[in-house]
Design a protein around this nucleic acid. Structure first.
Length: 573
RNA sequence: CGGGGUGUAGCGCAGUCGGCUAGCGCGCAGCGUUCGGGACGCUGAGGUCGGAGGUUCAAGUCCUCUCACCCCGACCA
């Protein structure tokens, strides 16, 4: 490809709208153009990268027993109502009406369609297992699209769905996909971290995310360097400290004038925060929920939402709290009857806590679970933090930021039951198909690759997904000798199967070198009167500062060595 | 949805108290001189000042409404 003909131009200045590095570089390199918030056009360079990523994914899916198919973006809303997931997606679902006022939506994902489809074709255990996938545009009306391609409303996603007869089968599919995903990232030259993830209110048991670790990722990962435990902060657990071994003492009321927060109460009574109970109020699908957690901990709202199995969760308003007869600042689970109480399991790990008395400026001492109060749900709903102890081995937990570039789930039978996807087992018994689903966002992976691989000059593409392999950079292209040698070399390299971007512009060396750095193609070949005197060219890897001089005769051999090194390097990481 | 911000040429920006033909840099076109890490000179093209309404002799500038985009938060299988 000739740079002079390539659609899309590099820009020297950083577009004002972009703050994230990958967003800035994608715009400056002329790879994407914004059409609306979270909606982009992909120019030829970006499209080539996407196609490379897509091909790697396709090969790995096929190798893992996947069969590719295609399903529609346009889907009847009814289908989503059947599973109730129109509620789960809420406003995230793009809805529209056809000319006959039928309700449709733009598919945010395709579990419903594929489950229905599979239900039509699968009757027997002999038809299973099945692994079907598609690479398709999906739509989600994100509350806040941001950071260029990292969070968009229209995006290309590979989704594979597995269908098995039993849990072992599901585990086989799941593990095979996990392996395939690791192959994909390795082949793309993008080292990822495998973390345990939240599967949401409707998801099944296991779920893992693949995180590309970057400084600016919007997800937080909690991990243990000792035993390699790692989990999304949404899901991460930690050891909540030793139970204070005290015998329950009788309840006692104390005046706590002017003390409302945990800090004030524990300061006033000269006790540690972990000897208090904190009360937090939420509205779960508009029902008031009283949440109790040990004073030193914080509520993880994702865990709480999962425990409650609700669609919407928000902090309750002051009016809702006082309307229920609760005294803010001295709220108490003791003696409550008409409000649902959810307790973090930390309340069972101690004794003689200080809690509110539900009277102004009054607290209770020696509150004990379950003697003095009970909860409808007692489970882990606390946030884990770096610095706390690992739930597996007790080591010190650390945290890192990452970008979620893949997510796999064991779904179970929720969807197959709702949509009637059953099979007959060898005993003639009808059973729901056990499902899993496995997704990768292609555009996000592209952007994440840049977040992870760049310098102050521009992008540094991992070789396997670079838009071109070679950047042929003639200096003084208006010099007839240079032009002739360049054209000859360009033809030879192209015919030999190399993907070459030729900077055929008559520009100063500085401009050409800077654009080459910005575009980030792995190997730059400089050709000029100076190199031609020695029948040679200059090779420079994007990752290196220095160039090497290679004779034209040795060029192909040397290029092969270099590229082998590039892919080797990225596969090992 | 709450808070903050920005809309002036393809991109980045300036535009005073409301006042004459709306500027600057980059980029773009032409010519010339240069050129191994974003060169220089000359010439030139390019604008519904986000949109609508209003105030005024006069609006990029003031007022009202509205739209879009960005950032923080809420939200986000």
């Amino acid at each position: 490809m000739r740079l002079s003909k390539l659609f899309g131009k590099t820009q020297r200045e950083i577009p004002a709208e972009a703050e994230t590095t990958s967003h800035q570089l994608l715009l400056r390199a002329g790879m994407i153009a914004q059409v609306a918030a979270g909606v982009y056009s992909y120019l030829p360079l970006a499209w080539r990268v996407l196609k490379k990523i897509e091909n790697i994914i396709r090969e790995e899916m096929d190798a893992a027993g996947g069969q590719e198919l295609m399903m529609p973006v346009l889907q009847p809303l009814e289908l989503w109502q059947e599973t109730g997931r129109d509620q789960a997606f809420g406003k995230g679902l793009f809805k529209l009406c056809d000319r006959r006022d039928r309700n449709l939506c733009l598919g945010p994902t395709h579990e419903e369609v594929i489950t229905k489809l599979v239900s039509q074709y699968v009757q027997s255990y002999r038809d299973l297992p099945l692994r079907l996938y598609q690479i398709q545009t999906k739509f989600r009306d994100e509350p806040r699209p941001r950071a260029g391609l990292l969070r968009v409303r229209e995006f290309t996603m590979k989704d594979l769905y597995s269908f098995d007869t039993d849990e072992e089968g599901l585990s086989r599919s799941y593990n095979r996909m996990l392996e395939a995903y690791q192959n994909i990232y390795a082949r793309c030259g993008l080292p990822t971290l495998l973390v345990e993830a939240d599967s949401g209110a409707i998801g099944g048991k296991d779920s893992h995310e693949f995180m590309l670790v970057t400084e600016t990722g919007e997800d937080e990962v909690i991990y243990c360097p000792e035993c390699r435990y790692s989990a999304n902060a949404e899901k991460a657990q930690s050891i909540k400290g030793e139970a204070h071994d005290k015998k329950p003492l009788p309840l006692e009321e104390v005046k706590t004038p002017g003390a409302a927060t945990i800090e004030e109460v524990s300061g006033f009574l000269k006790i540690a925060p972990e000897d208090t109970l904190k009360a937090v109020f939420y509205a779960a699908d508009n029902e008031l929920i009283f949440v109790v957690i040990r004073g030193d901990l914080e509520v993880n709202e994702i865990k709480l939402k999962n425990a409650l199995k609700c669609y919407q969760l928000r902090l309750a308003t002051e009016a809702e709290v006082s309307g229920a007869g609760i005294v803010a600042g001295a709220a108490s689970p003791v003696g409550l009857s008409n409000i649902k109480v959810v307790a973090d399991d930390s309340v069972t790990l101690g004794a003689n806590f200080v809690a509110g008395a539900n009277k102004p400026e009054t607290h209770l001492k020696n509150v004990n679970y379950p003697r003095d109060f009970t909860a409808a749900i007692v489970t882990d709903i606390a946030k884990a933090h770096a610095g706390e102890s690992c739930p597996r081995c007790g080591g010190k937990l650390l945290s890192a930021h990452g970008i979620e570039v893949g997510h796999i789930f064991k779904l179970g039978t929720f969807l197959s039951q709702k949509l009637g996807a059953y099979f007959t087992d060898p005993d003639g018994v009808s059973r729901p198909i056990i499902m899993g689903c496995y997704g990768i966002g292609l555009g996000r992976l592209l952007a994440a690759a840049i977040e992870q691989n760049h310098d102050d000059k521009g992008i540094i593409w991992p070789a396997p997904i670079a838009p071109y392999q070679l950047h042929l950079c003639p200096l003084f292209f208006d010099n007839p000798e240079v032009a002739a040698a360049t054209e000859k070399l360009y033809n030879e390299l192209t015919e030999a199967g190399w993907e070459v971007l030729l900077d055929d512009r008559i520009e100063s060396p500085g401009v050409k070198f800077n654009d080459a750095d910005l575009l980030g193609i792995p190997v730059r070949i400089t050709i000029s009167p100076r190199t031609l005197e020695k029948d040679s060219v200059e090779l420079k890897r994007r990752t290196e500062k220095k160039a090497e001089v290679v004779t034209l005769a040795d060029l192909e051999v040397r290029l092969k060595e270099l590229m082998a090194g590039e892919s080797l390097k990225t596969a090992v990481d």
